[in-house]
Structures are given as structure tokens and as C-alpha cells.
């Protein structure tokens, strides 16, 4: 009834592409989260006027389509003679793109921590750093996590755009198979299922953490 020319090798080819998607996403989200946390703390803690240059740069990363950023960055690194491989360029651009969104998540989450709670911490003799690490970050994490999970899942799908730099990730791998097998629907169905399999655990992890925290409130 159902017949396909897709072989186990082809499936392994897709899974290898998925590995690349996962690798790019992991680098982008890790780098983007670290940078975004740093920028978010800066944005929430210092005078908005002083943070203006940072805000402006991050706004560029949020406003310009990712595809344009990737292509421009790749051209720029070639002209500048950096000699970065496409994977490096992709990870850097995606990390900056992620950090721009993550900054806003972190800033919003930090600002959601009530001033009185922070005053209480400082009144007990805690330093600014202790207040941040012991009170603000744990409380902000609960506020920001759902948005951060959403961002991570979004970046995983957006990472497909790195195929334009010649990287064979999941979407590019499925395109290659579609061209060869001429079975677009089936191949895309499998690719979609793999995307889902990558995303589902992350979404579930977020859901479980949220539930556990809610039980304490």
C-alpha cells in the first residue's frame, strides 16, 4: 500500500542533518543566553541613557531579518579576511540574534522582581551581587523561563536559514533527499517529525519546571 524509495541510509543522512541543527542551536542558544543575560542585567541595572548604544545594536539584531544578517556576516568575514568556516559564522550570527531577544526576556524578568523584595534583601546586609544571585536571578528565572523556552524552540527552527551558507542541516538534508527521491511529502513529513522530536523534550522540560515551581506558590 505504502511504498518509498527512502533507505535507512537516507534516514541516517537526515538524522545527521538534525545533528547539525542541534549543534548550531546549542551553540547559538548557549552563547545567546550568556550574552543576553549579561546585556539584560546591564539594561535593567544601569541608566537607560548609558545603555542606549547597547539597546540600539540589539535592536538592529532584532529588526533585520536573520537571512540578511547571515549573508552579510558571511560576506563581511570573507572581505575582512577572517577565514571563518560557515559553521562558525552561523553560530556567531545566531548567538547574537538570540542574545538580542534574550536580553529583553532577562530585562523583563529582572524588572518583574518587586522592588520591596530586593530592598528586603539589601536591608539584611546582602550586597548587590548577593541580591542578584540569591534573590533576583532565581525569581526572574521563573518569570523568564517560558519565554526563553519559546525563544530556544524558535531559534532551532530559524537555524534552518544557515543552509544559505552551505551548511547541511536538517532542512537542507531533506531538500537534497526531495530532489533525489522525488517524494517531497514523505521526506518533509519525516523531517517535520524529527524537528518535533528535537523540540518536544525542551518544551516538556520547561513545562515540568514551571509545574514544580507553581506547586510551591
Amino acid at each position: 500500500m505504502f511504498d518509498t524509495a527512502m533507505t535507512l541510509n537516507d534516514l541516517m543522512f537526515l538524522i545527521k542533518g538534525a545533528g547539525m541543527t542541534l549543534a548550531v542551536t546549542a551553540f547559538a542558544v548557549t552563547g545567546g543566553t550568556l550574552l543576553g543575560t549579561l546585556f539584560g542585567v546591564i539594561r535593567s541595572q544601569i541608566n537607560p541613557w548609558l545603555a542606549l548604544p547597547l539597546t540600539f545594536v540589539l535592536d538592529i539584531f532584532r529588526s533585520v531579518p536573520l537571512l540578511i544578517q547571515l549573508i552579510l556576516a558571511n560576506a563581511f568575514q570573507a572581505i575582512a579576511g577572517f577565514g571563518w568556516p560557515p559553521f562558525t559564522t552561523s553560530c556567531i550570527v545566531l548567538a547574537l540574534y538570540t542574545s538580542a531577544y534574550c536580553t529583553e526576556i532577562v530585562r523583563g524578568a529582572i524588572e518583574a522582581v518587586p522592588t520591596v523584595t530586593r530592598r528586603a534583601a539589601r536591608s539584611l546586609g546582602m550586597t548587590w551581587g548577593q541580591d542578584m544571585t540569591q534573590i533576583v536571578f532565581p525569581m526572574a528565572l521563573r518569570v523568564g523561563l517560558p519565554s526563553w523556552i519559546g525563544l530556544t524552540l524558535g531559534v532551532m527552527k530559524d537555524s534552518a536559514l544557515v543552509l544559505w551558507l552551505g551548511i547541511i542541516e536538517l532542512l537542507r538534508a531533506s531538500q537534497i533527499l526531495v530532489t533525489r527521491l522525488q517524494e517531497p511529502l514523505f521526506v518533509l513529513l519525516v523531517a517535520g517529525a524529527i524537528y518535533f522530536a528535537l523540540s518536544f523534550p525542551i518544551a516538556r522540560l520547561g513545562g515540568r519546571l514551571e509545574k514544580r515551581w507553581r506547586e510551591n506558590d
Binding site: 518587586p114 520591596v116 530592598r119 528586603a120 534583601a121 540569591q134 525569581m139 515551581w213 510551591n216
Partner: peptide, 10 residues
Amino acid sequence: VFQQFNAFPH
């Protein structure tokens, strides 16, 4: 001690 309850909720 303040008017608003400012427990550390976590």
C-alpha cells in the same frame, strides 16, 4: 520589616 510582605517566594 516592611508593610508589604516581602518573603523570598522561591
